[in-house]
Amino acid sequence: MTDYRVSARRIDSHGSLSVAKEAEVMLDTDMAGRSDAMNPVELLLSSLAACMLKGIERVTPILKFQLQGAEVHLEGIRQDAPPKLTLIRYQIVVDSDETDARLDLLHRNVLKYGTISNTLSAALPLEGNLIRKV
């Protein structure tokens, strides 16, 4: 069993700071919003993106999968009442010469072994694909 620890504190009415290990992340907790920090939904989507990218790093050596790069694009769909995300759409783009069948294998493994993707998919639909960079 692994546990994770994060602390966050309010700096002022415009922002807060989150700390984990030796890393710090400025949080957009301003009611008007701010462009230099991520809001809570953007942080959640970033967590999913990081999970998917880390999953790629984890499984590519096991699958002997060759790639030159990877990126993830996400979109969260929010309803207002009650406020919640109802859908997350994603697209994973890999720069690779592997076959389409191998791209599908990578996609399945990234989703199957992702802590954040498994947690979120139990709460709301995750819709997306993994494609080759053109």
Score class of each variant (00 low, 15 high):
T2V: 15
T2S: 14
D3M: 12
D3L: 07
Y4T: 08
Y4F: 14
R5P: 02
A8D: 04
I11K: 06
I11M: 09
D12L: 06
L17M: 12
L17G: 04
S18K: 04
E22P: 04
A23H: 14
E24H: 12
M26F: 15
M31N: 12
M31A: 11
G33W: 06
R34I: 01
S35E: 14
A37K: 07
A37Y: 03
P40D: 01
V41W: 07
E42S: 02
E42L: 00
L43T: 05
L45I: 00
L45V: 00
S47W: 03
A50T: 11
A50H: 04
L53P: 13
K54D: 11
K54I: 12
G55C: 05
I56F: 11
E57Y: 04
E57F: 03
R58Y: 09
V59M: 04
P61N: 00
P61Q: 05
I62C: 01
F65G: 02
F65Y: 12
Q66H: 14
Q66E: 14
L67F: 14
E71N: 15
E71S: 14
V72L: 07
V72N: 06
V72Q: 06
H73A: 14
L74T: 14
E75Q: 11
G76I: 10
R78H: 11
A81G: 06
A81E: 12
K84C: 07
K84P: 00
L87V: 05
I88K: 09
Y90D: 00
V94T: 13
D97H: 15
D97N: 13
E98R: 05
T99R: 03
T99I: 07
D100H: 15
D100P: 02
D100M: 13
A101T: 10
L103R: 13
L103G: 09
D104M: 00
D104S: 11
L106V: 06
H107A: 04
H107E: 08
H107N: 08
R108I: 00
T115L: 14
S117R: 07
T119A: 13
L120K: 01
A123E: 13
L126I: 06
L130R: 09
L130M: 15
I131C: 05
K133N: 03
